[in-house]
Amino acid sequence: MRDVRIWFSKSGAVKYVSHLDMFRLMTRAVRRADIPLWYTEGFNPHPYISFLQPLPLGVETCYEPLDIRIEGEIENEEIKNRLNAVMPDGMHIEAVTQAFCKPAEAAYGEYKIVLDAEDISAEEVVRIIENGGLTCEKSAKVRGRKGTKIVDVSAAIHSYEVKQENDTVVIFVTLPASPELTLNPLQFLTGISNQYGTVLYPLEASRIRLLCADMSAFS
């Protein structure tokens, strides 16, 4: 029995698969690939599959970790090849490694957001971020009940970069992704939209990678 970390990318239609559905998708993929999974004991055995950082609906990812527990002898490379043979379009296994970092070590996520230049210019985006005061609503437990709280987006931005590319505006931004605070790129975009006064829809939003607190790659 050992834990392996599977690094996958997803783009296209698969980005609309929710976190819960991703779990089902991966469970089935692992079954199709005939990977010797470890099952829990008891009346209703189920495999151990764990996503480290949920992604919001509509966000793509380039290199996302997922842990599974396996049983029996199988090489990491073999796991990767077998999985890639049975993945749906848009999902690809980039690597299979040992699980080096603990899930709680993830601190930041690096994101790319592409906007339609018809909707907003690069200068305008920079101006809004520099002005500060970006906020967004986030669901949270308020005194044990479901509610929402206002999050200070500006304070949470670690670093960013904005570029004009042909008819698009490309934003690279690093946001917290730790147990204490996680901000996703759509919430960041909501912060900008709130200041801009118009709702901005991304042409593309993706997570490039996860980082540890010292800004080294989460591995």
């Binding site: 296209g12 239609a13 698969v14 609309y16 698969v17 929710s18 559905d21 609906l57 509509g58 049975v86 993945m87 749906p88 379009d89 848009g90 759509l186 829809y201 991304p202 042409l203």
Partner: peptide, 22 residues
Amino acid sequence: IKKLEKILPLVQKPARYTGGEL
């Protein structure tokens, strides 16, 4: 299509409309 891309984030369960399943 680009038009569809823009409305999908606004609806419930967009994966109903994308196709591309295994």
